[in-house]
Design a protein around this nucleic acid. Structure first.
Lengths: 245, 245
DNA sequence: GGGGAGAGATGCCGC
DNA sequence: GCGGCATTTCTCCCC
């Protein structure tokens, strides 16, 4: 494909807020929060309608290079060939593609106003505990959720049947030492702010690392093995059973 | 574009280890580590030669949905239209695209054996401190780097002019409470393993959050405001000045 | 494969 | 904008 017609077509597509995708052989240099260099190879470049730019190698999950929305992308043709220079003045970042060969180019005006809904998050987990406090223990009474403290916020906060204050920190995945430290800060802060010397700390997670378990024990905290909820899966099963009729 | 010729073309491209890209109007359901749903809109789907699959909306930096290498992708045509089902048995994940309309399709055999080099990382920062210990203070003598302990590893480890042991934890970005807790664990571990009661802890980072600063003070630790090195940028400037001649 | 930690992390929310 | 924190984090390294 001819460089100058490529340049024209991409520039027109960007002006029209289209999403541009092309495959090419190129090298990449990035300079900004860090510095990176990638020697020549075949890549797919996508420039979205909001000027987000991603560079993908033909393997791997993540983009090898990218520029966020807010960057400007310009094309230069000189003796050395075709170059794309992306600059983000605000973030003081820049990226340069030296393009050797173009494999394909496609641009299209894409319309998408939908936003993803996600379930099974840590917040869903604390919702579940608010709804079913017996998951922590009989007599546990949640008082508030995401209580803001100077050190952050607490997932679930309440008291047990003997009126001891209880802080529950939820993790939707295996909990490590960081989760224990987080719980420690919340408990320490609550003790100070309320002037009491006994606050129970409970880590709720589907599993713990051994280090986390030892730290919990050292600090006199407890844990509960609780799986995060999966509402969608439940819904899908219901739909499936409806479809059976 | 016709659904059945689309299906054939994509399946053939996947068999041939090509990278496949298509634009379509579709809805997406994901079930695995969490559950997600995205109603119909225009998206770009990329299937790489290693079977990585990413779904991009026409805006945003990150893919809205994805499946990692190891997943299988199959296409089904029925009364409801065209569906793509990706399943990853090992990770117990699945994704379903209900495709309403196809905007474009492109597949290409891409060759890329290059891997990115990155500079300005935390390791580069500890390298810099090893080379220029006076950045910490006059008389600081680094002894080793990335000293492994039971709780992880220490970035830089040495002693000051009065022969006190010093642990330096490097962060190449704003350091938060987690960095202080990390430093705390390293210092605690070193005190125990060497049977000494005084080890200096220093957090080296370009900036600190207020919480981190207060925690440092509480624990009697210090900090140094140090920027991570940017070798590439330096190199580029040299090249630029060479080009000036 | 699990565990631990960094990352150009990204993204969200709250102040 | 910063701060604090979750994330289908991703990635690497080491045991």
């Amino acid at each position: 494909m001819d460089f100058s017609s490529f340049k024209e077509q991409v520039e027109r597509a960007i002006r029209n807020n289209e999403t541009v995708i092309f495959g090419c052989a190129c090298s990449v240099v990035y300079s900004g929060r860090a510095e990176s260099f990638l020697e020549t190879g075949d890549r797919v470049i996508m420039i979205k309608s909001d000027n987000n730019l991603i560079v993908h190698q033909p393997h791997g999950t993540s983009p090898v290079n990218y520029m966020k929305a807010g960057a400007d992308h310009s094309f230069i043709i000189d003796d050395g060939g075709l170059h794309m220079e992306s600059t983000d003045e605000k973030r003081k970042e820049s990226m340069i593609l030296d393009i050797i060969d173009i494999h394909f180019l496609h641009s299209h005006p894409l319309q998408d106003g939908a936003s993803i809904t996600l379930q099974g998050s840590e917040k869903d987990m604390s919702d579940m505990i608010m709804d079913r406090p017996e998951l922590i223990e009989d007599g546990f009474t949640p008082l508030s959720r995401e209580e803001h403290t100077e050190h952050g916020f607490v997932d679930v906060f309440g008291h047990d049947k003997d009126n001891n204050l209880v802080i529950v920190e939820c993790k939707r995945f295996t909990a490590g030492p960081a989760a224990v430290e987080q719980l420690t800060r919340y408990v320490r802060k609550l003790k100070r702010s309320r002037g009491i010397d006994h606050v129970r700390g409970i880590l709720a997670a589907p599993s713990l690392t051994k280090t986390a378990e030892r730290l919990l024990e050292e600090k006199g905290f407890e844990h509960r093995l609780i799986d995060p909820p999966n509402f969608h899966r439940r819904q899908k099963r219901q739909q499936a059973s409806l479809a059976d009729f």
